[in-house]
Simulated scan of single mutants.
Amino acid sequence: MASKQTLHMNQGQGETSYACNSSAQSVEQNKMKPLIEAAILDLCSSSSTMLPTKMVIADLGCSSGPNALTLVSIAVQAIHSHCLQFVQPPPEVCVLLNDLPHNDFNTVVKSLVTLHQGNDPIVVTGVAPGSFYERLFTSGSLHLVCSSNSLHWLSKAPEVLTSNKISAYDIDEHARLQKLPIVFEAYGQQFRKDFTLFLKLRAKELVPGGRMVISLPGRRSDELASEFCHLWETLAQILRVMTIEGVIDRVKFDSFYVPMHGPSHEELKVIIQEEGSFSISEMQVHDPRSCVDNALIVPSMFASMMRAVFEPIIVQHFGDVMDEFMACTEQRWSQPGSLEEEVAGNPLVMLVVSLTKA
């Protein structure tokens, strides 16, 4: 399940779309701004050995909506500011946006026109549909790669679970606790395999000294190794209730695997070091809720965000149960303060990493 065709956010610009339910992701992108600006400064610096007359910037997992251009826009503006400050001719810039083929590229392409406004620097744009667990660009062609809220998505669910029919989230609490270490280890190994491949591929596509700035949701280092990231756990719990209530089939619930893993920063650091293509310029670990007004965390908003992210996967596996899913989700937090209590009780971190090609 959860093939390349279904791993996309809700399309369009309606009230259930990702475009209208991605404010939390926007906050995270703003956290990446100083690291992207620092990477651009390094690439444009007179002390650099590259002194590029052209720069190619790629956003991997751009999705759609207002956030699709945020990271590349930060980079383009940083290039413009640097050239103004040091009275240097700006390089020609090529901006490439990537996501899986079923992403809403129609909306993305329409928004690309904003990057063409003005002639300083000259910006040309394009889209590159495909998985970032495959080669996307020619060798040595990229200067900067960015990715936000995408790399926690795996290429597939762990085969050791799917082939042996080990449920990712057992409906029985006792059985679930017994299986959790096995399940978590399987997801961790799949993430290691996928992220190692991601690093190898990007190292081939980046120029010598090229930069990469990425962010993804993770978990705290002091958490038990049997705990998943909050969204994964919350989704499974909601679907579990729907199964108990007879809304969805037990067999389908047992065969539902979300291809998602949130690593700790030590886990991420070890994989990067062992793969060897990049050095870590900076790594940040922060609470994404620190910049969010708690008054804005309301059940309807959180339920809509869950729908925008997970609806394609849910519908592909269970059929059209989204009305029931939304009702169950909002019922989960029907008591005043229940959502705030759950969010507070599930520590979530975002990992932001700036890498330099070795």
Rank of each mutant, 00 (worst) to 15 (best):
I238E: 14
G65I: 01
V213E: 09
P208Q: 07
L180T: 04
N164E: 08
A78S: 15
D323F: 01
E274P: 05
M212E: 08
Q335V: 14
L161G: 08
K252N: 12
P347I: 10
R289F: 15
A75P: 06
M50D: 11
F256S: 04
G319K: 03
S277D: 12
F228G: 08
H265S: 12
E134Q: 13
R135T: 12
I171A: 11
V285C: 07
S150N: 05
A58W: 02
Q284Y: 06
Q331S: 13
L115K: 02
E267V: 04
S64N: 09
E330L: 08
C94M: 07
T125L: 08
V123C: 09
V124Y: 03
L201Q: 06
I74L: 07
C229Q: 11
F105G: 07
L60C: 14
L115P: 07
V93C: 04
I171E: 04
F318R: 05
D59L: 04
T243L: 00
L197T: 13
D254S: 11
E15A: 01
M301Y: 08
L71N: 03
G218N: 05
T243Y: 01
M326L: 09
G337W: 03
Y257C: 00
E233N: 13
G209E: 01
S148C: 12
D59P: 07
V292M: 14
K156G: 10
V72H: 06
K252Y: 02
M306Q: 12
L206K: 13
Y257G: 06
V124A: 10
D249M: 04
C328Q: 13
A327P: 05
I40H: 00
A38P: 03
V87S: 14
L7H: 00
